[in-house]
Design a protein around this nucleic acid. Sequence first.
DNA 1: GTGAAAGCGCTAACAC
DNA 2: GTGTTAGCGCTTTCAC
Lengths: 350, 350
Amino acid sequence: MNEIDNDSFQKSHKNVTIIDVARASGVSYSTVSRVLNGYEFVKEDTRQRVLEAAEKLGYVANLQARSLAGGHSNIIGVLVPGLDNSYIGEIIRGVDEELARANYDLMLYTTHRQRGHEQRYVNTIANGLTDGLLLVVPEVPTDYLKALSEKSFPHVLIDQSNVRDSSSMVDSTNWQGAYDATRYLIELGHRRIGFITGMMELSSAGERLDGYRAALTDHSIPFLPELVAPGDFWQRSGHKSGLQLLDLPAPPTAIFASNDLMAFGLMEAIRERNLSVPEDISIVGFDDIPQSSIVYPPLTTVRQPLDQMGRVAARLLLEQIENPDRPPRRVTLATQLIIRESCAALKERG
Amino acid sequence: MNEIDNDSFQKSHKNVTIIDVARASGVSYSTVSRVLNGYEFVKEDTRQRVLEAAEKLGYVANLQARSLAGGHSNIIGVLVPGLDNSYIGEIIRGVDEELARANYDLMLYTTHRQRGHEQRYVNTIANGLTDGLLLVVPEVPTDYLKALSEKSFPHVLIDQSNVRDSSSMVDSTNWQGAYDATRYLIELGHRRIGFITGMMELSSAGERLDGYRAALTDHSIPFLPELVAPGDFWQRSGHKSGLQLLDLPAPPTAIFASNDLMAFGLMEAIRERNLSVPEDISIVGFDDIPQSSIVYPPLTTVRQPLDQMGRVAARLLLEQIENPDRPPRRVTLATQLIIRESCAALKERG
DNA sequence: GTGAAAGCGCTAACAC
DNA sequence: GTGTTAGCGCTTTCAC
């Protein structure tokens, strides 16, 4: 086979490039680039010819070349612990919607992949093809946050507010939400209100505990440490701590779980003890993930606007990318108590 | 400011490149490339120096440059309808795990973004930075599948078996699963068994209906069209069709919903009619998504090994990337009936 | 064993 | 208005 054959063979494997379009439309390839990038000062006639040629040839831009040369990829990374919690799914949904609107693509990274190498991992991400990074990480990520900030790489944290770093972030009113839920229980007549904590390394967990405690105090109800059981935001811990609370000599008449998943575990525990919700015990959760309205009884919970948090975070990030000098912002969205059927007024004793 | 200042200013913004490493270790930059890519024939001494320099400078490879030059990015795309169904989440989890193992990154694309432009959309993906594509799309994607196949772009379909295209795919035994579930209901004594279909454009929906019908036939139970209500795999349709079935003059004593989400909707409908599961009516779902064990009563369902389907699909894709000439493969994983508490033996009549 | 050099496809200065 | 040209950071022949 001669060179020409070989060449055409190769071409058939290649995608059509800007050069092919240039040849087909009889202009230089930088003009093609201009047309494709919406540069104004191109003769209408030329523009048409280029567009037609591109269309006919089925030209599609090569993203890596474009970003190599142009310095940005229109891709943003989202770093999450994993996909096994619909809490994450909701956030990503919001992110995705907002990104779609701005014509960005989404690269999904899960931390469970590279335990221990996260520092380097985040470096790779930042240095790689993403224009910005959204972090929904459960551990306090101070080490790599510093790296991100030093590079002044655009990033925003979601639902992780205890970092004193100069990063943008969005969270929700954890304290207020917990306060509201607790007050609701108090207003129903409950006095012995149990609490299952979240993973206490997370700021949100601490804020929720504080809100619970504050509501108690404001209503002159003593805070009893034995009514607080440890949890880690996973269903299993809700079950275990639920049992612990239920088996107390003087068990609580209501329990506030720091998130919905644990409330589900708690519901299991309650069933195992042959008690029923809300007749024997009232429970409330936190998050309002989709299945909370599906379980039986439907769970009263503090709604975190998860998808909106994702949306807002994405927007903050995009702003930061467009305007790198803008100082970090912090947005806190309001939670809302969603009353369903898992709580009842305290029965008259006797 | 003079040129040198300007230059150093720019540099401070840049990431350290292979050239910086080369300078620091006193070799040519192609040698650095060799070391970094694990090329064997480099003097051990040289290798060490390069490695040290890279480490010290904090060098991280630039992905787009690497893929531009090298022709592959180690990124695979995953195209999903959206994230609003944990069915998808489970699949992605499997995909992600397998990809992590092979050191690939995951690019997430959602179809709800570009309705109507999907053809072009998939083109972009394929031509862009991904080395392969995993499709979990609900609509029959024949149009762009053709494009993918023509470019012989590595891709595999998940849970979409009715395409006669020459693509690799993985699905599960939908027919058998539905057959098993129906037989289980029959063995419990049920004769009037309702069925809520899935979105019939999907092959899986048809296969499940067929399995249901076959089980009926095999047990000499007439197939009654009025007992089959339309659904679309979403909870709302389960609710609506559930009501329709429940309000029949002679309602079924058991209902098989084509997926769990619809079974949840059905459960709502049943509660609304003041009936209870499983005392008054038995129900079974399909998929076994995480919340199916959480709802009350825990749902008896046909488990699809969703995460494993994701894993297998990823593996098939990776094989296809490594060995482009391998013919498309099709893998069907076994479903399994998971018996929980939503079914009971038919009560003696009278 | 290692260096030099030619691109990968594109953007963005800079000419004309 | 449009063409020319220099890279972006890297992989990969091809020399030596």
